[in-house]
């Protein structure tokens, strides 16, 4: 039997193992970014817009609350059972925050400033609390606090949702508490 025939007949015997896992590990760090400038910007926005939006929304909301409280107008809508709602929201927010804190920092991609703004008892909260203590029974301040809770809760839900959407590579162990 000549050499060519022998090799062709035993071709699979000449194949060895594949490369070690290091090759992919190194390659992974060099993966090309999407080429088109526009495509990249759009993709970046799709992936990260909400992180910027959280900070803006929370800061704007805090500003609006201040303005709202300083107006002399009566509140049109009186929210019933404020006390219960307050404890309900704060419990939910604490729960969501715990969930968020369990995510690896890099995956969640939130900076410390945003996280601080999301904390339940941050400066805005303390400010509202102080106002409430000074004016016990003031429905407007209570309503403002509830609104602040609602907004925060919505944003937390959104962050966790978005995170789950973009992390489908590794099945999320997060359970939706809703």
């Amino acid at each position: 039997m000549n050499l060519e025939e022998f090799i062709r007949q035993n071709r699979s015997g000449f194949e060895g193992e594949g490369p070690g896992p290091d090759v992919w590990a190194r390659l992974e760090k060099q993966l090309p970014k999407p080429k088109k400038e526009k495509g990249r910007v759009v993709q970046m926005m799709a992936k990260h817009w909400w992180k910027a939006a959280i900070l803006v929304a929370l800061l704007v909301n805090a500003g609006l609350l201040l303005k709202y409280m300083n107006t002399k107008q009566e509140v049109a809508v009186v929210i019933p059972e404020i006390q219960e709602m307050e404890s309900y929201y704060s419990a939910r927010i604490e729960q969501k925050m715990d969930e968020l804190k369990q995510l690896p920092a890099a995956t969640a991609g939130l900076d410390s400033l945003t996280l601080k703004e999301l904390e339940l008892r941050n400066d805005t909260y303390k400010m509202l609390e102080k106002e409430l203590a000074a004016n016990p029974g003031n429905e407007r301040i209570r309503a403002a606090m509830i609104r602040y809770y609602q907004m925060k809760l919505e944003l937390l839900d959104r962050i966790l949702d978005e995170h789950n959407k973009y992390s489908n590579d590794s099945p999320s162990t997060q359970k939706d508490v809703l």
Binding site: F14, G18, P19, V23, W24, L27, D169
Partner: peptide
Amino acid sequence: CRMGDARAFHDLYHAYSKAMYNICLR
């Protein structure tokens, strides 16, 4: 891959890595 999907690069690499590594080794 052209859209920059990391998973697609991974799949492409793993489909070919063994045969191509054998070429390199030879």
